[in-house]
């Protein structure tokens, strides 16, 4: 479904993303992990044609995302609040997104009714603009608008970061369900190793712009990852290497 070839991005003479080759097959569920500044968000942005790579290309269904717009028809993504139109009420925003996919208001309402557990009564009919919602509730709006698009490819950047434990639990189930039952390819980044190893079948570990590990999830994955991050942590503390915090990273 996605093929990345020789993708590089440079900020201030520092290579922040450097991926010689990566292939994501249809129906896979992928978890992207890595410390701050590893290049996760930058990679996402390049996959969504939001920033121009120095070299290389991202192919979605065999077509370069840069210069084409077909991928927009089957890709839904939520990276940060910048993806939401914050002066609309959540309902208005959902109707707008639904309208883009030729869904009537009744259809949108019906779909949203199915998400009432996920919303937990905090989103719809609250009489607030999106900008007045808390960050966690904004995330819920973003994720719900992605699901509303019935995508074939779903990309979420740190979806678990600001939401409460109950919603995290529900979100995990939803992600598993659309992957298993509807065959949606999911790509989720997270700092929470428990969550990604729970949801995703394949884990990509990024460090300083490279994918240094690409593994299928099994019972030992979590401990393997924990080991990596624990050591990484120690090394940083010892020789206090200057870490390039990615300026695009926006948490």
């Amino acid at each position: 479904m996605i093929e990345i070839k020789d993708l590089k991005k440079v900020y201030n003479n520092i290579l922040v993303v450097n991926i010689p080759h990566l292939e994501i097959r249809k129906g896979e569920s992928i978890g992207l992990v890595g410390n701050n500044g590893a290049g996760k968000t930058t990679l996402f942005r390049m996959m969504l044609d939001l920033i121009r790579p120095e070299t290389g290309e991202v192919l979605s269904n065999g077509e370069n995302v840069a210069g084409h717009e077909n991928w927009k028809n089957y890709t839904a993504s939520y990276l940060d609040e910048g993806f939401l139109i914050d002066y609309l009420t959540p309902e208005e925003y959902f109707y707008f997104i639904g309208g883009l996919y030729q869904q009537s208001r009744a259809q949108v309402d019906e779909f949203l009714a199915g998400l009432s557990d996920f919303f937990n009564g905090e989103i719809l009919k609250r009489g607030k603009y999106i900008r007045d919602l808390s960050k966690g509730n904004q995330t819920k709006v973003g994720v719900a608008s992605c699901l509303l698009q019935h995508p074939e490819l779903l990309m979420l950047d740190e979806p678990f970061a600001n939401i409460d434990p109950t919603t995290q639990f529900r979100l995990k189930n939803m992600l598993k369900e659309i992957n298993k039952e509807q065959g949606v390819t999911t790509l989720v980044s997270s700092h929470d190793l428990n969550h990604v190893t729970d949801v995703c079948e394949r884990i990509l570990l990024m460090e300083k712009g490279r994918i240094i590990k690409d593994m299928a999830t099994n019972s030992s994955t979590l401990s393997e990852l924990e080991e990596y991050f624990a050591i990484g942590h120690k090394m940083e503390a010892v020789d206090s290497v200057k870490i390039n915090v990615d300026e695009e990273e926006n948490h």
């Binding site: 927009k72 993504s77 910048g82």
Partner: peptide, 13 residues
């Protein structure tokens, strides 16, 4: 500007 990224990845041509 606030939601320009959102417009760019949405289905709006």
């Amino acid at each position: 500007a606030n939601h320009f990224d959102g417009i760019m990845v949405s289905k709006v041509s």
